[in-house]
């Protein structure tokens, strides 16, 4: 299968990455060569194989749903690009 420019623009939209029109051409070429490489897997018959979901011989641990720290608002907001006293700030969403 091959990826065309429209498909790539659609995937970029899904990934929330804007792509320059000028770069779509080279991106299409690169991604198609990568997918050609990936599609070697189609040589293998895997009908009877179970997909691997964990490489550990243990299941994921769960912990109690309890607050273990808390009261660290300042630390959490410290790296935000824009904030007011208590919130992260984003461009206006609702008119």
């Amino acid at each position: 299968m091959s990826l065309d420019k429209e498909k790539i623009k659609h995937v970029a939209k899904l990934a929330r990455i804007s792509v320059d029109e000028a770069k779509v051409e080279s991106l299409t070429k690169d991604l198609n060569s990568i997918f050609k490489f990936i599609e070697q897997l189609n040589e293998l018959n895997t009908d009877k194989v179970e997909p691997l979901t964990s490489i550990l011989n243990q299941s994921l641990r769960s912990r109690k749903d309890e607050i273990s720290d808390g009261k660290i608002r300042e630390k959490i907001l410290k790296n935000s690009p824009k904030e007011n006293e208590e919130f992260f700030v984003v461009p206006k969403v609702v008119e």
């Binding site: 990826l3 991106l27 189609n42 997909p51």
Partner: peptide, 30 residues
């Protein structure tokens, strides 16, 4: 990084998951 995010988004997107991601998880088992 953008290239890899696009590959990842595509192989997980609706209609392609079985052909790519599930296939890869099976080969990973092998």
């Amino acid at each position: 990084v953008k290239r890899r995010i696009l590959i990842g988004t595509y192989v997980l997107s609706s209609g392609y998951y079985d052909a790519y991601y599930l296939k890869a998880q099976k080969v990973r088992q092998l």
